[in-house]
Every structure is written in C-alpha cells, then in structure tokens.
Design a protein around this nucleic acid. Structure first.
Lengths: 113, 113
DNA sequence: GCGGGTTATGTCCCTTGGGAAATATCGCTT
DNA sequence: AAGCGATATTTCCCAAGGGACATAACCCGC
C-alpha cells in the first residue's frame, strides 16, 4: 500500500512528515538530541528544525532548557501538542478520503518494481 | 490560506506536485521542452522526470516522438491522463477533508511572517 | 539534401544542504 | 567547586543534485 506524505505550505514556512515525526520523538524522549538520533539525523539538523517550528507559530511548540538534572531537555508545549495532533488528523483524514484513488493508482503501477 | 502539497510514495517511486504539474504542462503544450520552460526547469530535468514516470507505471504516461512537423512532440497517453486525473482527485479530496484542521493550524501561526 | 525544431543523452561544473566536530553555556548533583 | 549531560552555536567540508552546455538522432517541409 503506498504511503501518503503530506506537507502544509504556509506563507513562509512549512509543516511536513519530518517535523511532525521530530515533534513526536521529542515528546517521547524528552530530548532534541535523542529525538534526532532516533531519526538518524544530526543534532544540528534537529535543532534547526525545532528553531523553524518555534519561529513559525505564534507560540513556541518546543520548550527546551539547558543544565539541570540530566543536563537539560526539551518537550512539547501545549501549542506543540495541539499542532502535532492537528497535523496527524490532517494526514489521517486525507488518507481515508483518498483511499479509492490511491488504490487505483497502485493498480496501475509496474508489477515488479 | 495554506497550500496542501501531497506526495504519494510507492515502493520505489513517488508522485507529487512537480510531476503532476509537468504532466499538465505536457498536455497543454504538446512538448516536453515547452512544459519544462513553462515551469522554469531545464529540459534535462523535465525529461528525467518523464522517464521516471514512464518507468514507474505499467504503461507509459507520456508518448513522445522525434522529428516530423515541428520537430517532434509529446503528449499524455490514456494512462497518463488517468493518472493525472486520479492524482488531482486525491489532492482535492484531501484538501476538502482536512479544511477544518488546516484552518486551525493557520490560526495558530505567527501573524506577521 | 538541407534546415529546423524537438527528443534523447552525456559531460562538466557549481551550488547548497546537511554531516562532523569543536566549543560554549547552563544548572543540578555530588 | 567540580563534573556531567544536554542544549546552543559556529566553522569546516563534502557529496549529490541540478543547471548549462554540447552533441546526436530523428523526420517533415522546402
């Protein structure tokens, strides 16, 4: 079954599968670096994506702290949880709505890829 | 209003906005090079995308001919027209299904981007 | 047969996005 | 006070993708 990747283009920023998964991993791990590692991306890239996200929305989606117990950490703000939930709902609704067409496209593909 | 970009990932190929627009332009202009020019891309890139498309599906989506009146040309096969129509329907259905969530996300964005 | 315009294909080069690594900073913990 | 672990930030470097360019093949009209 083909996968559906979905990207929302705002005026000057965008939200897609990469940032959504990063938010998910941050929520899971409580750390930007751990989230990046889990996705096989460098800390620099993970951090720059977080920076973009925080700059794009009225309220930051990720809050992070240096020092302290464990050296620091990061987690999703309420806004971050809301955005992630909304994005997931967009993907799911799109997937359901387009099931028939996607199946039709899959049926037209070359059998042995 | 944010734009929704949608990409379908098959096992080894993918179909997204770029290839869809290219197919549209080929249908309009009857030429791969003219379609590429209209999109601001080099002929080489346009041609390579067409090659990928033709290789991905059981039947070629674009038929092309060299020489002849006007030097040659290209147009969509029946399969090409079908694939393009299906893709457009996917995008439209997804857009409609996710309208509410997209509006909610837009409302959370930073005002002055 | 020659020229024109397009498809088809290869080569070279340059930009750029991202990785790797080094460094600074911070605040608990001990 | 020293150490630790994570965030924050910079610099350097490189491989891959795409553009520009060149060339060949092709076929109709003149």
């Amino acid at each position: 079954m083909p996968e559906l990747k979905l990207r929302i283009l705002f005026d000057d920023a965008m939200l897609g599968p990469g940032k959504a998964e990063l938010l998910t991993r941050i929520a899971e791990t409580g750390s930007i670096s751990a989230a990046g590692r889990a996705m096989g991306m460098s800390y620099k890239r993970a951090w720059s994506l977080v920076e973009e996200l925080n700059a794009s929305f009225a309220a930051p989606l990720v809050s992070s702290s240096r020092g302290g117990a464990g050296g620091g950490g990061a987690d999703l703000t309420d806004a971050g949880q809301t955005v992630l939930a909304l994005y997931r709902r967009v993907v799911e609704k799109a997937r359901v709505a387009a099931t028939a067409e996607i199946a039709a496209l899959e049926a037209m593909r070359k059998p042995t890829g």
